[in-house]
Design a protein around this nucleic acid. Structure first.
Lengths: 153, 153
DNA sequence: TCACATTTAATTGTTCGCAATTGAATGTGC
DNA sequence: GCACATTCAATTGCGAACAATTAAATGTGA
């Protein structure tokens, strides 16, 4: 029996998979970000952590994890690297010794100003209007939240 | 000078970043796929490689890489694991000894039938109509291709 | 109070993902 | 035919990502 392409195979075709679209778009973003973030001395996940901290400082690891959907297995070594780069300080909470609070250093705060150039470059690279990007973002977030809801059950 | 939230910070806010939407959606997909793929004995990137091979067999590593936007540093060890799992066979091309051809084993072919259940489960988890998903996928692919075009220049 | 569960980070081990380099095979220009 | 560049996979090293486990601190119920 020869294996020819058939309609029954459509659901398994790579180009029909939204998950691969998302997966490959995430990698494409990463590659566009890389040269921009190299100038800041950050990797992309490190940049995400810094975005969280630039919004609110002195937060436990768990809060960062909930925000980024990452766990301590990922964040602990990442935060240690940010600490080694003198961008954050890690201290045990005195109220609850289980928690480690992450605070920006002066250098960590200062880096925010250099980072302002990044979103503009990304917008240019996406070659797309802001309103289109916002609409897409909202759709993708809605999908993500539905997927995460399924996981939780 | 107190650091309060301001309009100038909007481009740096995590929830305004389409890249984070894509990044976190990719992870959400991964978590939904995990239990489904565990039954097949595959990781998500391994599943992608199998999707490529189920479409066309006996292809060089480079072709798989171009299809998935991955390089040999990622694919070589991954393919060795698929070989160890008896799903593929790796052989040097006789026409061009630089190339390694990847062919499915009988087990590799057979796994396709078990895999047919996967896309249905994902569709259910996304809680979304097929047409909506197709539209989103096309938008995301278009964005990805624009980003990849910028990288190539 | 004291046993027990829960919360929180850290650790370990496996798998991606990519940059940079290596080495072998192939293609080319002269 | 021979130096030279190019192509392709493999390797090395580093940084995620996550499952599973550990250990310490905290909360809870009898």
């Amino acid at each position: 029996m020869p294996r020819k392409s058939s309609a029954a195979d459509a659901p398994l075709r790579l180009d029909n998979q939204i998950c691969f679209a998302v997966y490959s778009a995430a990698h494409a973003f990463n590659r566009v970000y890389k040269p921009l973030l190299d100038r800041l001395g950050l990797t992309y996940p490190q940049y995400l952590v810094m975005l969280v901290l630039w919004e609110r400082d002195d937060v436990p690891v768990k809060d960062i994890g909930e925000r980024l959907f990452l766990d301590s297995g990922t964040l602990t070594p990442l935060l240690k690297r940010l600490e080694a780069a003198h961008l954050v300080k890690r201290t045990r909470s005195s109220e609850d010794e289980r928690q480690v609070l992450i605070a920006l250093t002066a250098q960590g705060h200062a880096l925010k100003e250099k980072a302002r150039a990044v979103p503009q470059s990304i917008l240019a690279a996406s070659d797309c209007s802001v309103s289109e990007l916002v609409a897409m973002k909202d759709e993708i977030v809605a999908l993500r939240d539905r997927l995460n809801a399924v996981i939780g059950e």
